[in-house]
Amino acid sequence: MSHLDQIPPVIAILIAGFVLLGSVLTLLGTIGLIRLGSFYERLHAPTLGTSWGAAGILIGSMLMFSTLGSRWVIHEIFLGCLIMLTMPVTLMVLGRAALHRDRAEGRPPRGTEGRQEPLK
């Protein structure tokens, strides 16, 4: 008898749902990273994929191992907190560095060429 046979069907469906949701969000973040045109537009897609995608997968993993009672899930909570805190901050710092570089070179931010300036 496998240890997976010990998981009740309702919990198994919840686990599958969270893992599927996390996988879909990660896939959407990856597709956005590939498809979006400028550097500044591409900054938003990985935030969704890594933050909420990883959270869905981690919640599914925590549900499974807490149901089986085979190990603690504290390290998964720690990983989730680190991912949710560091990814948006890292991408914000990358965006600001790129904006600073573009302004220092005296050109508009990449991807905004041809756009009209907002009225002031």
Rank of each mutant, 00 (worst) to 15 (best):
R35E: 07
R35I: 03
R35P: 00
R35Y: 03
L36D: 01
L36T: 07
G37Q: 14
G37P: 09
S38N: 03
S38I: 00
S38T: 02
S38H: 03
F39H: 10
F39R: 10
F39G: 08
F39M: 08
E41I: 03
R42A: 04
R42K: 14
R42D: 00
R42F: 08
L43N: 02
L43D: 00
L43F: 07
L43K: 06
L43S: 06
H44Y: 07
H44S: 07
H44D: 01
A45S: 15
A45P: 00
A45G: 06
A45C: 01
P46H: 01
P46E: 02
T47R: 12
T47A: 09
T47C: 09
T47W: 03
T47H: 06
L48A: 09
L48M: 12
L48R: 08
L48K: 10
G49Y: 01
G49I: 04
G49L: 05
T50W: 13
T50E: 10
T50P: 00
T50K: 12
S51L: 11
S51N: 12
S51P: 01
S51R: 10
S51G: 11
S51A: 14
W52E: 11
A54H: 09
A54V: 11
A54F: 13
A54N: 10
A55H: 02
A55D: 01
A55G: 02
G56H: 05
G56R: 05
G56S: 07
I57W: 06
I57L: 09
L58C: 08
L58N: 06
L58V: 14
I59T: 11
I59W: 02
I59E: 00
I59Q: 00
G60F: 03
G60N: 03
G60L: 03
S61W: 13
S61E: 08
M62L: 09
M62W: 07
M62F: 06
M62C: 10
L63A: 07
M64D: 06
M64Q: 13
M64S: 09
M64G: 10
S66R: 11
S66L: 11
S66C: 04
T67Q: 08
T67W: 05
T67I: 04
T67S: 14
L68E: 04
L68V: 02
L68W: 05
G69D: 02
G69P: 01
G69Q: 05
S70E: 12
S70K: 13
S70Y: 14
R71I: 11
R71W: 10
W72D: 13
W72Y: 12
W72M: 13
V73D: 07
V73Y: 05
V73E: 03
V73L: 10
I74C: 07
H75W: 10
H75L: 12
H75E: 12
E76S: 13
E76F: 15
E76W: 13
E76N: 14
I77M: 11
I77Q: 08
F78Q: 14
F78T: 14
F78S: 13
L79T: 15
G80C: 08
G80S: 12
C81Q: 11
C81D: 05
L82K: 08
L82G: 15
L82M: 14
I83V: 15
L85E: 01
L85F: 15
L85K: 10
L85I: 15
L85M: 13
